[in-house]
């Protein structure tokens, strides 16, 4: 009977210990997937109001001077130690954005907007490659107010400031909000997040970091 009691205690310990592990692993994916939650409409609303503010500013000063848009070749994110090359890409035959074939580089969606012009410019980078963390692995650690510095090959640079982070199930992301037209001068950074699903060979979620020109 004494052995039995010990066995029971052992069983309870094993099960509770194992559950903690499972919880911890689940927890990690949960925090990964929602670094910063805001209601979906907030962004559009915020944007449309700031767009008016901008227009008013233009009316008041008659002409607000913005730097020229640039063709990006380099990205720096001091807050998370990113320092990487940017390559221009477009669409493949399946109408999908071509991403780098390595974990170090960042892709700029060239058919869309240029960083610094009115519209949503988009940069995409991998969260991980086949062996470990890639260029945008720490993107989820960014906070509103952090700066993104984009440079062209002549050394002209533009600084963008993080507005918010948002993650979406991979098929539910608001594509137009990320890639489409806007009155803002925006730059959106895209990477993967959530669990890696072996059967579809893809991460289950996408993280978007919304930034605007400083």
């Amino acid at each position: 009977m004494k052995t039995n009691r010990i066995l029971f205690i052992l069983a309870i310990l094993l099960i509770s210990g194992g559950s903690t592990f499972i919880f911890a692993s689940m927890d990690e994916s949960a925090t990964n997937s929602t670094p910063y939650v805001k209601p979906a409409d907030d962004l559009t609303f915020h944007k449309q109001l700031t767009s008016f503010d901008q227009t008013e500013a233009i009316n008041e000063e008659n002409k607000q001077v913005y730097p020229e848009p640039i063709t990006p070749t380099h990205i720096e994110i001091p807050a998370i130690g990113v320092d990487a090359s940017i390559n221009a890409t477009g669409l493949d035959d399946n109408n999908e954005m071509i991403v780098p074939d390595n974990g170090e580089d960042v892709a700029w969606f060239e058919p869309g907007s240029q960083p610094g012009s009115t519209g949503n410019a988009v940069l995409a980078g991998h969260v991980d490659d086949y062996t470990g963390p890639a260029v945008f692995f720490d993107l989820e650690d960014l906070n509103p107010g952090d700066e993104i510095i984009i440079t062209d090959k002549k050394g002209e640079s533009l600084t963008f400031v993080v507005d918010q982070l948002k993650s979406y199930p991979k098929d539910k992301a608001p594509l137009r909000q990320v890639f489409g037209p806007t009155n803002e001068r925006s730059l959106n950074l895209v990477t993967c997040t959530g669990l890696y699903n072996q059967s579809i060979e893809e991460h289950e979620e996408r993280l978007v970091v919304y930034t605007t020109l400083k």
Partner: peptide
Amino acid sequence: TMMPSEMPQTGMGGAQSDMNNMFMIGLGTV
């Protein structure tokens, strides 16, 4: 402005093994 039909595939799964291992250890223990 031209946009892709879906969000880009920006990961190959290499950094997920830690988490999956943790899950498997937990499951095994249970």
